[in-house]
């Protein structure tokens, strides 16, 4: 079986700065894959390349069987994406947000109806589907964004920090839904997170990115064992991201993460 995502020496530079440096990833189908790393490590940049939002400077990648540079539209048809920032439109209702997505994916009216009903059911938002999204809690907005991203049953789902700023209950609600998406639709999920519990509980495989380079990949168990008998994922993270938690996030990154949290919280 071919991998759902496969990258070869995928690289992105901004001027002379290399944000993602020659990464090779192989994400098996139907896995939940976690991309970890300190602020500014290049996680979002990698996801933006894989979702065709950003051109790679060099290297190649295949997503759901198509090359991200040569066949971006084919890739887009087969992926869902929830950005690190807030992507549901607060000035619209849940139904209106979902309808917009459904139309952009070319669904017929009949198909839209069943898929939107399914997505509302999935996200537990059926009751509030006619309320403006700006009145929602952070957890509800995240669930709506997930619903929007899964509406067209993508083969691969990209989630950039899906649980940032959420309380423990809302966070668990997102985890359950991600597991359901894999179970019920066979989706492959690639997510980034700063939450070691999330990485441990949810992900089959982890890759730790540091200054644009992948330091190590493996299952949570393997990674912990490689550091020491009593090691936690926190220890793994520290060991593979330069010894200490680095202060490498730029002002822009921190501002983005903060505004996301404000809007969600």
């Amino acid at each position: 079986m071919t991998a759902a995502i496969e990258t070869r020496a995928l690289t992105r530079r901004f001027g002379s700065f290399t944000a993602v440096n020659q990464i090779d990833l192989a994400v098996p189908q139907q896995s939940i894959y976690g991309l970890l790393g300190p602020n500014g490590a290049g996680k979002s940049t990698a996801i933006k390349m894989l979702t065709t939002l950003l051109q790679p400077s060099s290297g190649t990648a295949q997503v759901a069987g198509f090359d991200i540079v040569r066949a971006p539209v084919e890739v887009r048809r087969r992926i869902g994406y929830v950005p690190q920032m807030l992507s549901a439109d607060g000035a619209l209702t849940a139904i209106e947000n979902l309808t917009l997505s459904a139309r952009l994916y070319g669904m017929s009216a009949a198909e839209r109806k069943t898929r939107i009903a399914e997505a509302l059911e999935f996200s537990g938002l059926a009751e509030v589907s006619h309320k403006l999204v700006k009145t929602y809690s952070g957890g509800m907005i995240r669930r709506l964004e997930l619903a929007q991203a899964m509406l067209h049953h993508p083969a691969v789902l990209f989630l950039d920090e899906p649980t940032i700023g959420l309380d423990p209950v809302a966070r668990r609600a997102v985890w359950e839904r991600l597991q359901a998406l894999r179970r019920d639709f066979g989706m492959t999920i690639l997510l980034t997170t700063h939450d070691m519990e999330e990485a441990d509980v949810l992900c089959d495989t982890l890759a730790i990115l540091h200054q644009g380079v992948i330091g190590v990949t493996g299952s949570p168990l393997e990674l912990k064992a490689s550091v020491g008998p009593e090691a936690t994922l926190d220890d793994v993270f520290v060991a593979f991201s330069g010894g200490t938690i680095q202060e490498s996030g730029s002002y822009r990154e921190v501002r983005q993460a903060r505004t996301t949290m404000q809007r969600l919280g």
């Binding site: 979702t51 939002l53 887009r76 992926i79 920032m85 997505s101 952009l104 994916y105 505004t259 809007r263």
Partner: peptide, 16 residues
């Protein structure tokens, strides 16, 4: 504003 939020990004990953 939509770009700062991520709405533009969402539109652009669609095949539209």
């Amino acid at each position: 504003w939509e770009r700062d939020l991520g709405i533009v990004q969402k539109l652009l990953v669609s095949p539209a």
